[in-house]
Amino acid sequence: MSPNRALLWCGVAAGPLFLAVATLAGALRPGYSAMRHPVDSLVLTGAGGVQVANFLITGALLTAFAVGAWRELNRTGRAGPTPWLLGLSGIGLIGSGLFRADPVGGYPVGSPEGAVHTVSGILHDTASTLFFFGLPLACVLFALRALGDRRPVVAGYSVLTAIVFFACFLWADAGFRQNPELLFVGGLYQRTALLVGFAWIAVLALLLLRSEKAEGPVTVR
């Protein structure tokens, strides 16, 4: 396997790893509801180091994939900003692991129902913004490239991903801010956004792997 193929495979692995670890960790936490609480809250308990590692490792995988995507897209034309946005998204996940989130929705048990604001929580939210804004923008810009390459199905899928991802992010954020209509489903909407977004990353990685295989390996220098 060429070094660049290894980088591209990081994009395939990132999403399944993140979602599997978060799902298992959430299922084992007393008082935690995947329907209501954000994935970020999993860093707040005694076993929070598991989710911290999940953020850091997934962020590193996504950043590595961004490097591979840049090399492959640059070989078949101008890479454009999509790989850079993917890299920023990966950095956002790493930042989310470095800074602890604030309690939300009464979790951990005994914490206030309303939002609690700390410096660490603000830094966590700022870092996560790189992911939740960078990824849909990467989808849209890649859709423009796909249209230029006369690949309307890929372009349409990318735009649809951006719309669903960002809409679910906004609904999740409203739920975490105690909107009464979304209070008990904020976690569900966040997980839907993550599933949709990571699926697009995996599809992009597989497309680039097929392109790399067809045209020959890229040598990483």
Rank of each mutant, 00 (worst) to 15 (best):
S2P: 15
P3L: 06
N4P: 02
A14M: 06
L19I: 15
L19K: 05
V21E: 00
V21W: 02
V21K: 01
A25Q: 14
L28A: 11
P30T: 09
P30R: 04
D40W: 00
L44C: 09
A47H: 11
V50S: 02
V50I: 15
F55C: 01
G59K: 02
L62M: 14
A64H: 08
F65K: 02
A66G: 13
A69M: 12
R78T: 13
P83T: 03
G87K: 00
S89I: 01
S89P: 01
G90D: 10
I91F: 15
L93G: 05
I94V: 15
G97Q: 01
L98G: 07
R100D: 09
A101D: 07
G105I: 00
P108T: 00
G110E: 11
G121F: 05
F133I: 15
P136V: 05
A138Y: 01
L141D: 10
L141K: 09
F142R: 14
F142I: 13
R145D: 00
A146T: 09
D149M: 11
R150E: 14
R150Y: 13
V153E: 12
V159K: 03
I163A: 10
C168Y: 01
C168V: 00
V185I: 13
R191L: 09
R191W: 02
W200K: 06
L204Y: 08
A205Y: 03
E212M: 04
A214S: 12
V218A: 06
V218W: 05
